[in-house]
Every structure is written in C-alpha cells, then in structure tokens.
Amino acid sequence: MKKYYADRTGIGILFVIIFLLVIILTTLSLIFLSFLPILMWIVIGLFAAAFFAVVIVWLPLYFKNLCYFITDEEVVANTGVFFKNKRIMKLSALQYFTCVTTPFSEKTGFNFVVLNALGGNIILLFLSHRDMDEIAKTLSLVIKQKKEG
C-alpha cells in the first residue's frame, strides 16, 4: 500500500491566483459601485472575508486532509474539510485513466489523474509530478495485468 499526499506547492499558486482575482474584483467594485459607497464597501468587505476564509483557513486544511491510498485492490481518496469524504474505487473496475498536467507542473504541483471506472470516476488532485508518474505506472501495470488475466 502506498500513500500519496497533495503537493503543498499548489497552496502558494492558488494563493496568488485567488489574491489576483480578489484584487480585480475589488478594483471593478471601486469603479462601478462608487456611486453607492455603502454597497461598494460591503461588497469589498465580502471579498476580503471570502479571501480570508478560503485562503487562510480552508485551503491549508483542505491540502492537509487531501491524501490517497493505492493498494493492490483499490484506490481510496480522502477529501474534504468540514464534511469528510472517502471514495473507494476497486482497481478491478478501472477501465482507463487520464493524466492532466499544466504548464510548469513539475514546479507548481498542478498535476491531476482521473480514474475512469464502471459507474463513476475519481479525480486525484494536486499531485506532484513524480507522484503522478508513479501512479500512472502503477495503474498501467494493473490494466496490463487485467488484460493478461
């Protein structure tokens, strides 16, 4: 059995993306809602509160809880912060998988694997490049053994 954790480099990237998004939305509020200052400040306050809640509180907890187990028979994905989610997929049900990478994913940790199986799929999020390659090799072996079996 092997355990994989999310690559925490992704938190930094997400922090920057969400921060930029909040800046853009705040600027737009300053431009378009300046005729009603109270509403403008309420909206900006909401954006700031959402930024704090997501980036400072929720995101680190999410990445801390995000982990995956791959055994000989199944894949288990643990996700969630306040509502914990455990998804178990039998490897015998696996049909094929998809690897998704982004630019500079070796540095950013934005690597994803989608496991497609009978009745649903599981997405493994924010893996490091090395972990993604390792998981891909393991799953290819499983599919090959299924074919030979």
């Binding site: 049909q95 094929y96 998988f97 690897c99 998704v100 990478t101 982004t102 599919i143 299924k146």
Partner: peptide, 15 residues
C-alpha cells in the same frame, strides 16, 4: 490534447 492543461489518456482495447 490541451494547450495549458495537457491531457493524456490511453484506452486499452480490452476496455
């Protein structure tokens, strides 16, 4: 496929 998000998949004939 994909420009920024590259997607790689391999569907075996048995599937």
């Amino acid at each position: 496929a994909g420009i920024f998000g590259r997607m790689k998949l391999s569907i075996p004939f048995t599937a």
